[in-house]
């Protein structure tokens, strides 16, 4: 039983999706991270010509990424840190 399940699962993860939308959901992160292959990108571009929900979920995913990279404040490095690293290194060598 279990092996049958695993088989089916693995088959699915090898580019075998029930619907096009399912495939889009699977490559959504790669698309927003610029990690999608040109085939994937092309497939997506074609698909969204006729699928508004997938276009929207892509936009949402992009928005989420932008929230983190655009709004998360960077913490300021303590001024003394660089110096104390150098000092420590000289002490231990």
């Amino acid at each position: 039983m279990e092996s049958k399940f695993t088989e089916a699962y693995q088959k699915k993860s090898e580019d075998c999706y029930d619907t096009e939308c399912e495939k889009v959901a699977h490559i959504l992160d790669s698309l927003v991270d610029g990690e999608a292959s040109s085939d994937e990108q092309e497939f997506f571009n074609k698909h969204i010509e006729s699928c508004v929900p997938c276009l929207e979920s892509h936009q949402k995913q992009k928005l989420l990424k932008n929230l983190v990279c655009g709004h998360l404040k960077r913490v300021i490095v303590p001024e003394t840190l660089a110096l104390s690293i150098k000092t420590k290194i000289q002490e231990t060598v």
Binding site: V75, P78, L81, S84, I85, I89, T92, V93
Partner: peptide, 17 residues
């Protein structure tokens, strides 16, 4: 935590050296 981050970074640079 700022202090922990400080220690962790120092330790990292020591190892890197």
């Amino acid at each position: 935590d700022e202090d922990d981050a400080n220690d962790l970074v120092q330790e990292t640079y020591l190892k890197a050296y």
